[in-house]
Design a protein around this nucleic acid. Structure first.
Length: 892
RNA sequence: GGGUGUAUAGCUCAGCGGGAGAGCACUACCUUGACAUGGUAGGGGUCACAGGUUCAAUCCCUGUUACACCCA
């Protein structure tokens, strides 16, 4: 016997372990008779804990994976985690400082040892949590971006790209995080608008009493000014071009130059140029061959070492070592004292901030490793243009193109300790040797120098995204030629959030097309973000997040999964509150209760039962509906329409199976004719079994539980059962049965409506008469008598003999009029109102239809089937109108 | 400043060139032998606004407004 209530927490762990231990999650490249289907998990940070975003993306992936597995594919869902450079380093750093250990004092090697120890202890948290979701990942193949094989792949890629000239060192401005003291890529910088000032400063012109006023938001960088730029067409300043400025504070002589970068409309139209501390100024400097003077150190404090001796005035010396904001205050005060600060305006500044950590980013001149992304992007762009890779929803392709066509070189080196150390060594003269290992580097050095030299390894590590870019092939064993690689590359679909298109998706496409000479996946499905009920982004700081593990504890994994699926429309963020999950939990309960009802009525699976034997209309009808549901569910999944898939499951289960089939079956189960009872039981079992199968991908736990409770298969085997085929159910003759069931449904519904509107107490059974009913209708009324009586609460259904009883309510079902004698109950005025309302509605419709049909243009130009349809509706409505009018006449 | 998306019932969202839909919420009634996490019935919408195309527009096109996001 099934428990009265479904208790998810009692079954989830057991079932999951059973599945995992049975090896059902495992891909097998040797299964040549099966087609492969592969999805690479977006590797969560090894430091991560499960949040709603994971719950969303993993549910969508698992649903697809389970469905394809049932369809008979050899499915690989590749799990793993990302070493997450900065995050992990920070986590371990914090742990160590709690113990009073300073990272720098123990040195790099010891620190990295600590990180690995931390990973061994706490790194598996997220993978345990993914199991709670029911995610059917192939855990035996779990990988880590820092494990040996993947590190090999990283090295191979780096060395190869270097030798191809696609990785190189360059000294240029880079986004510098002065807190982490590391370079970061353009993508990791977000510009934020903050309140600041625009300062107007007088710059005196050499050998003259004239001045030029420049406007700046960053006066502290004036120590590094090397020019003042004006627009070449700017009449106000044209004559000054070529003259020199005596730069305040340092006394440096700098030229006034003409450059279109200077916008005459902004500030004063004259701008100071500081090429070592501003990306635009850097370009100006390059065009005019200006000197680069760095005046900030790696922590963004004033550094005057590049200033010449005579520039180091007493004031300038006093600035040395000051953080940039303090230096700014000092300089402003000094300019005021010198009376060359004209004014300060309030100003909204765009200030670059580090996405991680939030530090204000400082453009900084350093030597870094770069990857030639623009070149690698070309085949990746082409793959989308030619349709080899498709984005779903398609509009993301535009975003992708826009970004890919305007790529900057990708800065791939980071000044961190945790990560893939760059395989580059330097000789005493800083000549660089890129090699697989130190021995190879030494060989190169020997050839280069003609003797052995001591080499120093590059300290830097690679951007975390560099290794994740290789994920689709590095996890499969590349650079070795493995069975997995040839079978599961390219993957079928990548499912992830749109927020990492550039970080991850695009880079996998670049690396994949370059190294594998083939796309990494055929389809990119991009889902939205999970937001709270109000549409706010969930975040730790706001505290508006929902913990998926709490949700699972409270409502069960199935409820959460179904909710996520149901809410995942195309190209939309999803707004999620606990309330929504609670709502959809009712659906899980409904499935459970429907199953309990079946069990109580001795619904049992009969493998020998064939759908060809089905005789009863009710049974033929539900099989037809089931066939439709299978078709719809399948095509919804094929189109990544998770909302539609959920909706098909929901409505078939609730509206068709529970509300009508099981309700009608109540009468059938009580029938004296045992063949009827037997057939209905067998069909109920078949429908329930199939229903569990189409529901399984999204709600695996409740379905798998019912699967073995009903003995549809051994415990845990639903997930490897075959995805149902709609055809055998569709071949059961269902058309006539549909007409019949549709009639009964309409008949019952209409009587219910009448009863409700006439306020007939539910407990009261009434009589029903049929007027003008044809022979079919009368036949239906007879054979469905029991069900109708129970469900519409009538005690007799008979053809009307003689006159219309007094005080009757009437309604029209197809050709017949249904008459309910309600003497003593009916409120005649209310009935008149109701009928008149009905009449108005029909009249409105008729007017519209008549106008349309008398329009010659419509008759000439509209599609014939539309015209035919309109004519049919006109006939039907005219008929209905007559009936209602007749009913009204009765009261006169 | 450039780009993308969204605007449909009180809320959250589907939909579609030809009769406005779902879930929840709401109202009324019902503890009928699976389920009150339930059942039955009902109310509720100028499909953001303004033009255009069309026999026909909530749907296609243009513009406007509002909101969200991305890029600079």
């Amino acid at each position: 016997m099934l428990e009265k209530k479904f208790n998810p927490s009692a079954v989830e762990n057991d079932l999951y372990h059973l599945w995992e231990e049975s090896g059902f999650f495992s891909a097998n490249p040797e299964q040549k008779d099966k087609k492969p289907f592969a999805i690479m998990i977006p590797p969560p940070n090894v430091t991560g804990t499960l949040h709603m975003g994971h719950a969303l993306t993993m549910t969508l992936q698992d649903t697809l994976i389970r469905w394809r597995r049932m369809q008979g594919y050899d499915v690989l869902w590749q799990p793993g985690t990302d070493h997450a450079g900065i995050s992990t380093q920070l986590v371990v750093d914090r742990k160590l400082s709690e113990k009073g250990i300073d990272r720098k004092s123990i040195g790099r090697d010891k620190f990295i040892k600590h990180v690995w120890e931390w990973k061994a202890e706490s790194g598996g948290e997220i993978t345990k949590q993914l199991r709670r979701l029911g995610a059917s990942l192939d855990w035996k193949r779990e990988r880590f971006t820092m494990d040996e094989g993947l590190s090999e792949a990283v090295k191979k890629v780096f060395v190869t790209l270097y030798r191809e000239g696609l990785i190189y060192q360059d000294k240029r401005l880079v986004n510098w995080d002065p807190v982490f003291r590391s370079a970061v890529s353009d993508l990791e910088v977000e510009s934020k608008e903050v309140n600041g000032h625009l300062w107007y400063i007088h710059y005196p012109i050499e050998n003259s009493d004239q001045i030029i006023t420049i406007a700046t938001t960053r006066p502290e960088t004036m120590l590094g000014d090397v020019a003042v730029a004006v627009h070449p067409e700017n009449a106000k300043y044209k004559h000054l071009v070529g003259k020199n400025i005596v730069l305040p504070l340092t006394g440096r002589l700098i030229p006034i130059i003409a450059d279109e970068y200077s916008d005459p409309e902004k500030g004063t139209g004259a701008v100071k140029i500081t090429p070592a501390h501003d990306f635009n100024d850097f370009e100006v400097g390059r065009r005019h061959d200006l000197k680069l003077i760095t005046i900030l150190d790696e922590s963004a404090a004033i550094d005057i070492s590049e200033l010449s001796e005579n520039e180091k005035t007493e004031f300038v010396l006093s600035l040395a070592g000051l953080p940039r904001d303090k230096a700014r205050k000092q300089i402003i005060a000094e300019l005021e004292r010198l009376e060359i600060l004209e004014k300060a305006e309030l100003h909204r500044n765009q200030v670059p901030h580090a996405e991680r950590g939030g530090a204000i980013i400082e453009p900084r001149l350093t030597t870094q490793w770069y990857c030639d992304a623009p070149t690698l992007a070309k085949p990746a762009i082409e793959a989308v243009q030619t349709g080899k890779i498709k984005f779903v929803p398609k509009q993301w392709e535009n975003t992708y193109f826009a970004w890919m066509r305007d790529l900057q070189p990708w800065c791939i080196s980071r000044q961190l300790w945790w990560g893939h150390q760059i395989p580059a060594w330097y000789g005493p003269d800083n000549h660089v040797f890129v090699a697989y290992d130190e021995n190879e580097a030494k060989e190169q050095a020997f050839k280069h120098y003609g003797k052995e030299e001591i080499l120093r390894r590059d300290e830097d590590v690679l951007d975390t995204w560099f290794s994740s870019a290789l994920w689709p092939f590095s996890t499969l064993g590349w650079p070795n030629d493995t069975a997995e690689l040839s079978r599961y590359y390219p993957g079928n679909v990548l499912i992830t959030g749109f927020d990492i298109i550039f970080f991850w998706v695009a880079r996998m496409m670049m690396m994949g097309t370059h190294f594998m000479k083939d796309i990494p996946f055929e389809t990119v499905y991009l889902h939205g973000l999970v937001r709270d009920e109000k549409g706010q982004k969930m975040s730790k700081t706001k505290g508006n997040g929902i913990d998926p593990l709490e949700v699972i504890d409270e409502f069960g994994a199935d409820a959460m999964r179904f909710t996520v699926c149901a809410l995942t429309g195309p190209g939309r963020d999803i707004k999620l509150g606990k309330k929504r999950i609670e709502e959809y939990r009712s659906f899980i309960t409904k499935i459970w209760n429907a199953a309990r009802f079946c069990e109580m009525n001795e619904v049992k699976y009969d493998p020998s039962f064939s759908t060809n034997d089905v005789k009863l209309s009710l049974n033929r009808w539900i099989l037809g509906e089931l066939s439709q549901a299978i078709t719809d569910a399948t095509s919804a999944l094929e189109a990544f329409r998770y909302d539609e898939y959920a909706s098909v499951c929901y409505h078939f289960t609730w509206d068709k199976f529970c509300d009508w089939f099981l309700e009608f079956a109540k009468a059938a189960f009580q029938n004296e004719d045992q063949t009827i009872v037997k057939e209905t039981r067998a069909v109920a079992a078949l429908v329930l079994k199939t229903l569990l199968q189409i529901l399984h991908p999204v709600v695996p736990f409740v379905t798998e539980t019912l699967w073995h409770e009903f003995n549809f298969g051994q415990k845990g085997t639903l997930m490897v059962s075959s995805w149902p085929d709609a055809t055998p159910f569709a071949t059961v003759k269902t058309k006539e049965s549909s007409e019949e069931i549709d009639w009964v449904v309409r008949f019952i519904s209409d009587i219910r409506t009448l009863r409700a509107e006439m306020n007939v107490p539910p407990a009261k059974f009434i009589s029903a008469y049929l007027k003008d009913a044809n022979i079919n209708t009368l036949h239906y009324a007879t054979i469905w008598g029991d069900a109708i009586k129970r469900m519409a609460r009538v005690d007799s259904i008979e053809p009307l003999q003689g006159d219309l009883p007094k005080d009757s309510a009437q309604t029209i079902v197809n050709e017949a009029t249904v008459i309910l004698p309600l003497a003593g109950i009916i409120d005649i005025d209310a009935e008149k109102v109701r009928l008149n309302k009905e009449l108005d509605k029909i009249a409105d419709e008729l007017t519209k239809l008549n106008t349309k049909l008398s329009n010659e243009n419509f008759i000439q130009k509209a599609r014939p089937e539309i015209i035919e349809e309109s004519r049919e509706r006109l006939t039907q409505l005219t008929h209905d109108k007559e009936r209602v009018e007749l009913a009204l006449k009765h009261f006169k």
